[in-house]
């Protein structure tokens, strides 16, 4: 599957009046500016991460000082053990992992099936329905949160995994992304599969899904990230420690451990490790899935 990309050095139309010498200089200036911008961006992104790690390795009082030191104290990793002992972060991590995994699987499944319907089946009002589907799901979560809360209460789902998972099982973004990938599959493949004896389900799972793998991988990572980082909804519908997710747990940790403030930073580090791992492992797919979208034979 060759993905067509434009080489970074694609020649640009330059007015013929510019001499090669000036063109070269201009290019050098531009690339210098690029590096400056990227360096600034990297510093902005990396500083909080560095500070979090540094503070987690300081002692409690050090971490509380203002303005604090930017240097880690001694390299004592026992703080990461301690944070598990003094707080329920183990349980929170488990909850987050479970909820994020369920949401991811759910979103991928609903997106694949909905995308297939919108990409492959022909029925009256398909496009209208697709627009309506996107529109309802594109409403920001904050707008629907009260209504969702009422629904969850009426189901008696406060403090439950269902309550944390079910409202997020469909996604407009995912459906759109995967529909694009499905629409890039040549019609001949669909027709060949029909003649080879496959109906919609057979084609979907043996041909369309494998071909849309980059988009599905990208969606999986995104869904997981978003679910992992949820804050408002879990805060709203969970009171019981048994169902709190790690982001809420960190908040609790911060308000109850003033004396050992480094623990809060250690908890933050622990909570972000899964995300880092995920990003590093899936980096390539993430970029490919979002930039190409379509699949090429």
């Amino acid at each position: 599957m060759a993905v067509e990309t434009i080489p970074a050095s694609a020649p640009r139309a330059v007015p013929p009046t510019v001499s090669p010498e000036r063109r070269r200089r201009r290019r050098r200036v531009r690339s210098f500016l690029n590096y400056v911008a990227l360096t600034i961006a990297a510093v902005v992104v990396l500083t909080p991460i560095y500070v979090t790690i540094a503070f987690s390795l300081q002692t409690g009082p050090q971490a509380l000082q203002f303005p604090g030191s930017m240097w880690p104290g001694e390299l004592d990793l026992s703080v990461f053990r301690r944070v598990f002992e003094v707080s329920g972060i183990g349980r929170y991590l488990f909850n987050s992992a479970l909820v994020a995994a369920l949401i991811t699987v759910g979103q991928v499944l609903t997106s694949i099936t909905a995308a297939y319907v919108f990409a492959e089946l022909e029925f009256k009002g398909r496009n209208l329905l697709f627009v309506a589907f996107l529109a309802t799901l594109m409403v920001p979560a904050e707008v629907t949160i009260v209504a969702n809360y009422d629904t969850i209460v009426s189901f008696g789902w406060l403090d439950s995994y269902q309550g944390l998972v079910v409202p997020f099982l469909a996604t407009a973004f995912g459906t759109f992304l995967i529909r694009q990938a499905f629409m890039g599959i040549p019609r001949d493949l669909r027709d060949a599969a029909k003649l080879d004896g496959y109906g919609h389900m057979g084609f979907l799972w043996s041909v369309a899904v494998p071909l849309a793998r980059p988009a599905i991988a990208a969606l999986s990572v995104f869904s997981f990230l978003l679910a992992w980082n949820q804050y408002l909804w879990p805060l709203l519908i969970t009171n019981d420690d048994d169902f709190r997710t790690v982001q809420i747990g960190l908040r609790t940790l911060a308000s109850s451990n003033i004396t050992e403030f480094n623990l809060v930073f250690a908890g933050t580090v622990v909570a972000s490790i899964p995300i880092f791992v995920l990003l590093i492992v899936f980096q390539k797919q993430l970029v490919r899935g979002l930039t190409s979208g379509a699949v090429k034979g």
Partner: peptide
């Protein structure tokens, strides 16, 4: 009758091989 129930096979101009 649906294609899969007609006893025939087709070779497409694009060959339509499953790339994966």
């Amino acid at each position: 009758v649906e294609p899969q129930h007609r006893d025939l096979a087709m070779v497409f101009q694009s060959y339509a091989l499953y790339p994966h």
